[in-house]
Design a protein around this nucleic acid. Structure first.
Length: 514
RNA sequence: GGGGCGUUAGCUCAGCUGGUAGAGCAGCGGACUUUUAAUCCGUUUGUCGUGGGUUCGAUCCCCGCACGCCCUACCA
């Protein structure tokens, strides 16, 4: 598309989106531009106080004290409410302070405290405009801490009307597409993302306290690896090569363990070219970590601690409520094998049936899933687990002993070569984390990659590629290690009681606006 | 990919199994010097998502399409 066409299209969008409210505000802005000699958006006002701090410090102070010792303040914020009377008015401004990044304080604007000219201007300022005000604190008749304004200025003219002041923004599509509007008007939305930030920093602190080194590994991979998923494919022009957005950082982080960084972690995005749902976004955040000389048992204890710490940091407690149901992260997480979980949550099956491949195949088909032809007993048990038990795992539960054939990067059990020292953590019926004792036998890993290539040839599109450099790295020797990935978005959903992954991602992916 | 529900003023929503639309907020004008979603009086604003069909007549009934939300599938 030429830039001219592009401009035409943008102009059309703007034109369609205009309305009489915006037109009115544009006229006001035009007058402001003329009156100010062109400086309609000044940037010389420096607020000295925040609404939340003033409320914390003075909400309990009475007028006598303010009269005895005047408290002069300088504040700025977006005007959210406005009550104009003949010679004096009230306005409520909101700034970014406070626990949920949005606190409000009331301004009392009286004609005799400012000039008549400024009062006339004030009357025509709109909800959404940014104001800067100077004045002193007092309590109104009803006891609300307010600022008696001696100077007030318009700092930024808002051209678009805010959502209805009482109900706020209700349209879910607009909340996702225009998150900025959602954040202005919804304290709940702001609280969710403040909590998300606390979760992430709590996890970082936890990792650093446990002597992990934070690293950043490539997002563009020449070979997609570390998980079974469909990658986004892109192209590097200068190198003229196909590249893949990473589906997991695993193989790079393990290269670092080979290099001698014995404890590493990375908090970053993974990209998977798969469906969108209430718990899937094409790009999602993962915290993945590796620790030398640890195994999957250690990882389970550690992960449990990490999650509990994050919940307490964000919510002050590990006893949460999710979608109306109690979710207790304070108790030790359960540990069940795949077969054990089926026996517990789908007791209609006998142990004999659960070890009968033909029976399992038929049963899985009944649930509407077709297992791969080459699926062995372990994979079939796993498939039945997913159909019958997984969604019932409300309380935190580690499912352990995953079959080798679906765990190409995990260390096999010393007691049973068919299973791996691997776990997945399920909470509220969803997978939250996946970890295992790492496979550090280069020859075994090479054989597993070959098996994956065969599976790919046999039609398994998600089977892994052979990564020769990763094998070379393992050949230098990787110390015994454990590694785990925690799905941050899902963890935040759980901790913030959010029903959809889109509620915990600031700008979730949507279809293009028509 | 399959199924269900939705789309009406800038926003929040009404709209009676069919007669080309209303309220509140916001805006504009007026009254009001302690309001709290301020109040009171007056007033502007709509391709009823979109394209067809049925009908004398469609926001309403039927079909297609677009977009969204939820469920479901792959997956974390």
């Amino acid at each position: 598309m030429s830039s001219q066409e592009n401009n035409q299209q943008n102009n059309e969008v703007v034109a369609v989106d205009e309305n009489h409210v915006i037109a009115e505000r544009r006229e006001k802005l035009k007058s402001i531009r003329e009156a100010t000699g062109g400086v309609a958006f000044p940037n010389d006002f420096k607020p000295q106080h925040k609404a939340a701090d003033l409320i914390a410090a003075y909400a309990n102070q009475e007028n006598e004290a303010f009269e005895a010792t005047p408290v002069n303040v300088v504040v700025a914020g977006r005007m959210m409410l406005k009550r104009v009377m003949g010679k004096a008015s009230f306005a409520t401004i909101q700034d970014g302070s406070g626990a949920n990044a949005g606190s409000r304080i009331q301004l009392y604007v009286a004609k005799d405290m400012i000039s008549e000219e400024v009062y006339e201007q004030f009357k025509h300022w709109d909800l959404g405009d940014f104001l800067g005000a100077t004045g002193h604190l007092f309590k109104t008749k009803t006891g609300e801490l307010s600022i008696k304004v001696t100077e007030i200025r318009l700092l930024t003219k808002s051209l678009r009307p805010l959502p209805e002041k009482f109900h706020g923004l209700q349209d879910q599509e607009v909340k996702y597409r225009q998150r900025y509007v959602d954040l202005i008007t919804s304290e709940e939305t702001r609280a969710t993302f403040v909590a998300r930030s606390k979760v992430v920093s709590a996890i970082r602190n936890f990792m650093i306290q446990n002597e992990f080194l934070e690293v950043e590994t490539p997002m563009l991979h020449p070979i997609p690896g570390g998980a079974s998923a469909k990658p986004f494919i892109t192209h590097h022009n200068a190198l003229d090569m196909q590249m893949y957005m990473r589906i997991a950082p695993e193989l790079y982080l393990k290269r670092l363990v080979v290099g001698g960084f014995e404890r590493v972690f990375e908090v970053n995005r993974n990209f998977r070219n798969e469906g969108l749902s209430v718990r899937h976004n094409p790009e999602f955040t993962m915290m993945e970590f590796y620790a030398a000389y640890t195994d999957y048992q250690w990882l389970m204890d550690f992960t449990e601690n990490c999650i509990r710490t994050a919940a307490i940091a964000a919510r002050g407690t590990a006893v949460l409520e999710y979608q109306g149901r109690e979710l207790d992260l304070s108790k030790p997480f359960q540990r069940l094998t795949i077969v054990g979980a089926i026996q517990k949550y789908a007791p209609q099956y006998t142990l004999e049936q659960l070890n009968d491949e033909a029976f399992l195949r038929a049963e899985i088909l009944k649930h509407g899933t077709k297992p791969f032809d080459h699926a062995g007993l372990g994979a079939l048990q796993l498939a039945l687990f997913e159909e019958t038990a997984e969604s019932q795992l409300w309380e935190p539960t580690y499912i352990i002993d995953y079959p080798v054939e679906v765990s190409p990067l995990a260390r096999a059990s010393d007691k049973n070569p068919e299973i791996t020292e691997r776990f997945e953590l399920f909470v509220t019926g969803r997978e939250i984390a996946n970890g295992f004792s790492e496979l550090n036998d280069a020859e075994d890993q090479a054989a597993r990659f070959h098996a994956q290539m065969k599976a790919k040839e046999a039609g398994d599109h998600e089977a892994m590629f052979y990564d020769a450099d990763f094998i070379r790295a393992l050949e230098y020797g990787m110390p015994p290690a454990g590694g785990c990935g925690i799905g941050i978005d899902r963890l935040v959903m759980m901790i913030t009681d959010s029903a959809s992954i889109r509620d915990v991602i600031l700008f979730p992916h949507m279809r293009a606006e028509s």
